[in-house]
Nucleic acid binder design. Structure first.
Ligand SMILES: [Mn+2]
Ligand SMILES: [Mn+2]
Ligand SMILES: [Zn+2]
Ligand SMILES: [Zn+2]
Lengths: 144, 144
DNA sequence: ATCCTACGATGGACCAATTCCAAGTCAATA
DNA sequence: TATTGACTTGGAATTGGTCCATCGTAGGAT
């Protein structure tokens, strides 16, 4: 039995969590749902505008912020100025990014970097997570 | 034989590399030299101003940018809005940062994260480096 | 089906971090 | 010491994001 409905897993979950559903929130969630992209707030805004022309930037920022607090979306800080929003919050992963064009890919390294930080290197911190960012050149940028 | 002169290792190197030395560039380099801090551009500007009151922000940004291109200083992007500048570019290391107050510490995890990224997870990229960022609460923020 | 109201949406002002620019200054070479 | 290309400056511009007063509406109550 093949599952044809791929969308709205996220929408479903949000509703279940009591997230008040509005046309604006729906399109933001829909833009993020689906493939594992890493859009900037402005890219989300542009795509949302295609579906709901009167949506405002402030609303997009609000919705993104809420999705992040809810743990449904991850905020990724690259060295670009703009944060990126990652809907793939359920399967833990890390990132590989192209220093030239900014492309981001999800990667799943082997090993547990948390285990690689001995107590003597924790300086009394309560360590709760770790992000690994690989940098390099994507196939396109390597040849060009 | 104890080495008393701890400063100007950086200055020395820059001179040797043919970096045209001006009063402004010197104070920026001096602010960064020495202990392993992670200052924002504005913090560098403030400290530089203490030594050379007429220096301008633009010049601080210019000098920082050049030091980064020269590989003498590392740019660290946290989730804060402002980038941090790390003079510890010679001994490879990673970072542990407090999610509450923003404190950053250098850490040296065991293991090689580059070796943990199999070819099948490189997607044709030429991978050149990796950053590991541990997050948690510093001792102060844990108790408070 | 309609009412109510607390929560959400809006756009425009505001802000912080950074970059850009035209004009003035100066370090290093000859 | 004269020359000149590189560096510095202050302010304007740009970018990415937040704030806020006001208006609109989702969804529970009736
Ligand atoms: Mn991702
Ligand atoms: Mn460091
Ligand atoms: Zn690329
Ligand atoms: Zn702290």
């Amino acid at each position: 039995m093949v599952r044809l409905v791929v969308m709205s897993d996220l929408l479903e979950r949000l509703r279940g969590r009591g997230w008040r559903m509005t046309a604006q929130r729906r399109v933001v969630a829909e833009v993020l749902d689906g493939e594992h992209v890493h859009l900037t707030a402005d890219e989300v805004y542009t795509r949302a505008t295609a579906r709901l022309p009167e949506i405002s930037r402030a609303t997009v920022y609000n919705a993104l912020g809420e999705l992040v607090s809810l743990g449904e979306v991850l905020e990724v800080a690259t060295d670009d100025r703009a944060k990126r929003y990652d809907p793939n919050a359920h399967r833990p992963h890390h990132h590989l990014l192209c220093s030239r064009c900014g492309t981001i890919r999800d990667v799943h390294p082997t090993g547990d970097p948390l285990a690689d930080l001995p107590d003597s290197e924790r300086f009394g911190f309560t360590v709760s997570g770790v992000e690994v960012t690989y940098r390099g050149l994507c196939p396109d940028c390597t040849t060009t």
